[in-house]
Each structure stands twice: as C-alpha cells, then as structure tokens.
C-alpha cells in the first residue's frame, strides 16, 4: 500500500477544530488541544485548513534530530519517536515546515501523527463533520487535482 497522509481539503474545511478535539481524545482522553497531532491553521478569517504530518519521504525532522530519536516507519511512512532519546529540544519542530509536530509539556517530548494504528481509521477523519479530511497518497491527491482541473477546463467555454 502506498504511503498515505492525512490531507485536508481547504474548500471544505470550516475551521471547527473538531479534528483537534478528536486527536486529543484519541491520544490523551482529554480536551488538551495543545497535544493534538493535527492542528487547524487560519490564515484568513474566511479560510482554514487542518494540517498533520505529511509523512515526507525525506523527513527533515528525522534528519534534524541531534539525538537520533526520530526514525521513519518504512511501510507506513509515519515518524517514530524513541522517547528515551528525545530531550525535548524542539529542533524537529523547527525543521518541520508544516508545523505538524507539537511539544507535549507533560512528557517533555514531541508528539507526531501516527495515523491511529489501533483504530480502523484515524479518529480525526472519523469525526470531521465536513468530510474535509482524507487519507491520501501523493498519487491520489494528484489524481483528484487532475480531475478537478479537467472539470474546470471542460466547463470553460
């Protein structure tokens, strides 16, 4: 199976942050949104998009970790953390261009989306009221965008 990351369709995202709640509930059984692995960005008052780990094939976070605490699961692409090695320095947070890594103040180590391996599908996907989230491989995302572009092209006079 191709590596598929949680992807948000900004045209559907309303900025409701239910994905953040879903994540905090799945990971900590709490409403502690600070440790949510998916976060809603709001660049404009009428625009929002939720962002989780992109599962980059050459992950800068892994490369940046001075203590080799991070590694990438070759099959699923998720970033694995060796908690014993993590000092909480936050260098990976600086390296991630998507802001997809958060610091958990209670454990003083970082948290990253793991696609909820124990659940049938990630909790955020399950609860998103707008069905704005999907698990998409780069090929799937490209395919969707191609379809959209084609529709636009064919619709225009």
């Amino acid at each position: 199976m191709a590596i598929a990351a949680i992807t948000c369709n900004p045209a559907l995202c309303t900025g409701c942050q239910v994905c953040e709640f879903a994540c905090a509930l799945a990971k900590a059984k709490s409403f502690d949104l600070e440790i949510a692995r998916i976060r809603t960005a709001r660049p404009e008052p009428d625009q929002a998009v939720s962002i989780a780990c992109r599962l980059c094939p050459s992950p800068p976070c892994v490369a940046s970790c001075p203590r080799d605490a991070l590694s990438q699961d070759p099959a699923k692409g998720i970033i694995l953390l060796n908690k014993a090695r993590c000092s909480g320095c936050g260098w990976c947070i600086e390296a991630c261009e998507f802001g997809a890594i958060a610091m958990d103040p209670s454990t003083k180590s970082v948290v990253i989306c793991d696609l909820c391996p124990d659940l049938p599908k990630p909790r955020c996907l399950e609860l998103c009221p707008q069905q704005a989230l999907s698990l998409s491989s780069p090929a799937q995302t490209a395919g969707r965008n191609r379809d959209r572009a084609a529709r636009r092209e064919l619709a225009s006079p």
Binding site: A11, L12, T14, G15, C16, Q17, V18, F21, P45, D46, Q47, A48, P129, Q130
Partner: peptide, 10 residues
Amino acid sequence: RNTSACPACP
C-alpha cells in the same frame, strides 16, 4: 465561497 464554523460546531 465557503463556510466557517465556531469551534466544535458541525
């Protein structure tokens, strides 16, 4: 264009 929601609102 689109819609926006308050937190936790479907």
